[in-house]
Nucleic acid binder design. Structure first.
Length: 190
DNA sequence: ACCGTGATGTTCT
DNA sequence: GAACATCACGGTG
């Protein structure tokens, strides 16, 4: 079952935790690809020094101020795209970074987009999974209640919370347990 | 296996 | 002009 708008309108920590075990799908002209979400991170806007929205609304962060259920993609290190799900109601600037998937559908297409053969190398990181699913910067602002990109219910997994990855610049916020992972999964980013 | 390094473009100061 | 929610590759063991 495809997740409806209401799922995304809740706070970012709840959405990040509950996204574990759901299936992220893109359905593009080249084919359908998907994977089970096994790693997420919540970015909590005004109260989170690690969040891109911490310093308010800009051209880049304006999508955070939409209601939940829209896609925030951004370019990192000049080369890779990271895919996020906007959460909470309008004007509460929260988002959930999708950090890893267990590949499910369209594995051959993912292999060719990634130029990799090993299953573990397809979606085990935010830049990797964005490439595997064919997500480009044009997905900025895409609606997850659409047919091109969406999330479905799938598995029930055991979740644990840890510190977020690569946010040392954020001071105290770097210690918050706002990363959620499926316990003992082979396809995590680290 | 692990570690170090370099690539590359947007955003914000 | 610096920093960046990363990844691939080449070196060494």
């Amino acid at each position: 079952m495809k997740l409806e708008r209401e799922f995304y309108l809740r706070d970012g920590l709840t959405v990040a935790r509950e996204l574990i075990g759901k299936k992220l799908v893109t359905n593009l002209p080249e084919g359908l690809t998907s994977g089970i979400i096994i790693e997420t991170e919540a970015y909590m806007g005004a109260i989170d020094a690690a969040s891109h929205a911490y310093r308010g609304k800009t051209e880049r962060t304006k999508i955070f101020y939409n209601a939940g259920g829209f896609v925030y993609v951004y370019l990192i290190y000049g080369m890779y795209l990271c895919t996020n799900v906007v959460s909470n109601v309008a004007n509460v600037p929260e988002a959930v970074l999708i950090r890893a998937l267990k590949p499910v559908n369209g594995i051959e297409l993912m292999k060719s987009r990634r130029n990799k053969k090993n299953l573990r190398e397809l979606c085990s990181g935010p830049g990797k999974l964005s490439q595997a699913l064919g997500i480009t910067k044009n997905f900025y602002g895409a609606d997850l209640c659409s047919d091109e990109i969406f999330i479905e219910t799938a598995e029930d997994l055991c979740v644990e919370a840890t510190k977020r990855i690569n946010v040392e610049y954020a001071g105290e916020a770097a210690n918050y347990l706002w990363r959620f992972v499926a316990k003992d999964n082979n396809f995590l980013s680290v």
